[in-house]
Design a protein around this nucleic acid. Structure first.
Length: 667
DNA sequence: CAATCCTTATA
DNA sequence: ATAAGGATT
């Protein structure tokens, strides 16, 4: 087939052939070149982390084999600028049309707009589609045509739209391939040597790709779904859908999920099965939250950087990298928090409830800047998703109109008994506490010395004393909030008096920089752009000793226990018992090195001085990506309203809402 | 039946 | 924290 008049289908986070509107349209239009462009530098701070890249690699390879069975292959390009890569491919294959599916994160909104402009200017017809949502953000409006500002309103509107979400499309029967020889693929590198060991562990628990996505969906709908309402609150239950990473990469379409769940609901309804109703509603609600995260991102395209409710910008964050490190490494002294953070570290996964616990602890008890926590989630979660995570952290930080109040402090001890009443979750991830009776498992600092001794727990030695006491945290939070409101009022007064802005605002004119060890080494990257980003960010590595291994020893038990617990400890079924565990046995023997290694790492890390350099470096690098530069306009509104200037500077192709006025009425 | 206590959920 | 709903008296 000659390249003339062929169509490019640009895959991004829609790595599937089923229910893929862009692919379907491309196939209908004629010969297809299926393209994936890997340009992580475009994502700025939010380049995919180790586990995301691990996932992506396999998902792409499965997409490629699907495409091959349909008649073409996936062309991959390594790039630092998607749009110019697209142009190159257009030229080399002589394409006349481009098809892609919408994304709603701030960078994609801008990049896709630019793509449309530039390619159109080059005579290419660009078609874009909704493949990620039940309804496009601009379709879901209230009675007066404004976007909703609370989830409840948004979601009930979604559920009562006058038309159903589009039905899932079947995969194409056959794809007429464009001339792929005109456009050779670049090899894409998604992991470096240092990451291989950590990544090897992931494969025991997860299998990326649309096939597993479909399987996970069916398994969930036919199994755990009916009990979802009951079970979703248990910290370590394997009763959630485990669909989030699949959904993030678009391996299964949310519309398919929605339709199948709805079918089940109808079925249960006809059987008079009431139990299923609540479960279905709750599960669909979690799908709805994902929708809402896109909705928020579209309507507030700065929400990953800036709080939606402006007052939070006056919050006096505690800039303490030792706190931050203790949180990341699960050494805060609060067992539920620590267990969660160790699970995240070792597996890239965390139950939804525990995400709330650890992030709330982060913001309210440690009072670290929420963006640090969000960035860590982004770097370490298998289902890292900018829109969802931004929504989650803003919810926790009290900057959504309907989020939690910031002054409502959650107590990890009580939450522990709520979500992990028998302490099983804590014992699994904190083997050093394994022998502590349930009575004390969530507050070892209160346990009598004799109990601690019997359990082999030495507070301050093999398990930390709480790094911040609850009472102290409460006091500090009250103080911080008072200060925040005071500054907020002062700033508003300044504006109302018509005084020139700028007073007292200077410190907030740019977000608090990430600690330096969180930043990519861009120099290395620029010198060698074909490799993945080099990071000095060690938390992306599984600790040489994973907690599961510690457990094996501490419980001095045989392999069958390991197998049985291993099932629960990793989210998805796999046959751990078939694995020869020589590697693990080896590491178990090195158990004692675990804490030492950590201590050494701490010592090394403390030499790195974080802070100031980050921002200027970012500014210098601003040419490639539309870098977020916070506008210098006033703070007169309770809701941060400056994204209008963002939109003016970075226009979007999708319809843009004038929601600002609407928002300021709500607060 | 109303008042009160208790549980639960909270995007 | 608090509001709603359920259970209890």
């Amino acid at each position: 087939m000659s390249g003339g008049g062929c169509n490019i289908v640009w895959f991004r986070r829609d790595l599937r052939v089923e229910d893929n509107p862009a692919l379907a349209a491309g196939v209908r239009a004629g010969a297809v070149i299926a393209l994936y462009v890997w340009a992580p530098e475009e994502e700025g701070h939010y380049q995919p982390g180790r586990v995301s890249r691990w996932w992506l690699k396999q998902s792409l390879s499965q997409l490629d084999s699907s495409l091959r069975s349909l008649g073409t292959t996936l062309i991959t390009k390594r790039s630092t600028d998607s749009v110019s890569s697209l142009l190159q491919v257009v030229k080399s294959v002589g394409a006349t049309q481009l098809f892609f599916n919408h994304l709603y994160d701030p960078l994609s909104l801008v990049r896709d707009h630019r793509t449309k402009e530039i390619l159109t200017a080059h005579g290419v017809t660009v078609h874009s589609f909704n493949a990620d949502l039940l309804y496009e953000p601009w379709e879901v409006l209230d009675d007066v045509g404004q976007p909703f500002t609370t989830f409840a309103g948004f979601w009930s509107k979604c559920l009562s739209m006058p038309y159903d979400p589009d039905s899932p499309l079947l995969p194409p029967k056959r794809i007429i391939s464009g001339d792929v020889s005109l456009c050779p693929s670049d090899p894409l590198v998604f992991e470096d040597e240092s990451e291989k060991g950590s990544n090897a562990l992931l494969a025991r628990a997860w299998s990326p790709g649309w096939k597993s996505a479909d399987k996970a969906l069916t398994t969930f709908i036919n199994g755990p779904l009916i009990e979802y309402a009951k079970n979703r609150r248990k910290a370590d239950s394997a009763t959630t859908s485990f669909l989030s990473p699949h959904l993030h990469f678009g391996e299964v379409s949310v519309r398919k999920v929605f339709h199948l769940v709805r079918l089940k609901q109808v079925l249960w309804n006809n059987e008079g099965n009431q139990a299923g109703e609540e479960s279905v509603n709750l599960f669909l609600k979690s799908i709805g939250l994902r929708e809402y995260s896109r909705y928020i991102s579209f309507n507030h395209p700065y929400s990953h950087e800036k709080p939606l409710l402006g007052h939070l910008k006056f919050f006096p964050w505690v800039i303490d990298e030792d706190y931050f490190k203790a949180w990341r490494q699960g050494r805060t002294g609060y067992p539920l928090v620590d267990a969660g953070m160790r699970e995240l570290w070792a597996t890239g996964w965390l139950h939804d409830r525990i995400r709330v616990v650890v992030s709330s602890f982060f913001v309210k008890i440690l009072q670290l800047p929420w963006r640090w926590g969000m960035k860590y989630f982004w770097d370490t979660l298998l289902d890292a998703d900018l829109e969802s995570d931004a929504l989650g952290w803003q919810y926790i930080s009290g900057t959504l109109p309907d989020g939690r109040e910031l002054d409502r402090m959650d107590n990890p001890q009580f939450e522990g008994y709520k979500f992990d009443p028998n302490g099983e979750f804590v014992r699994r991830w904190l083997p050093e506490l394994a022998r502590l009776p349930t009575e004390w498992i969530h507050h070892p600092w209160n346990a009598p010395p004799s109990v601690l001794q019997a359990a082999g727990v030495e507070l301050g030695s093999n398990y930390p004393i709480p790094i911040v006491g609850i009472d102290a945290a409460k006091a500090r939070l009250q103080e911080a909030l008072a200060q925040m409101w005071q500054h907020e009022a002062a700033s508003r007064a300044v504006i109302e008096n018509g005084t020139e802005e700028g007073l007292g605002d200077s410190s907030d004119s740019s977000p608090i920089a990430f600690p330096q060890d969180m930043e990519e080494d861009r120099t290395a990257l620029r010198n060698n752009p074909t490799t993945t980003t080099i990071r000095r960010y060690e938390d992306q590595m599984v600790p040489s000793m994973t907690t599961s291994l510690v457990r094996v020893e501490s419980e001095e038990t045989s392999s069958d226990l390991r197998v049985e617990r291993g099932r629960a400890e990793v989210p998805i079924n796999l046959n751990m018992d078939e694995e020869p565990r020589a590697d693990i046995v080896n590491q178990v023997n090195n158990l004692q090195h675990f804490n030492i290694a950590m201590a050494l790492r701490d010592a090394e890390d403390s030499t790195a001085d974080s802070s100031s350099s980050t921002i200027s470096r970012r500014e210098r690098d601003g040419g490639v990506v539309p870098v977020w530069s916070p506008p210098a306009s006033s703070y007169s509104e309770q809701y941060v309203g400056e994204e209008n200037s963002f939109l003016q500077r970075h226009p979007q192709s999708h319809q843009v809402m004038n929601w600002t006025q609407r928002l300021s009425q709500t607060g």
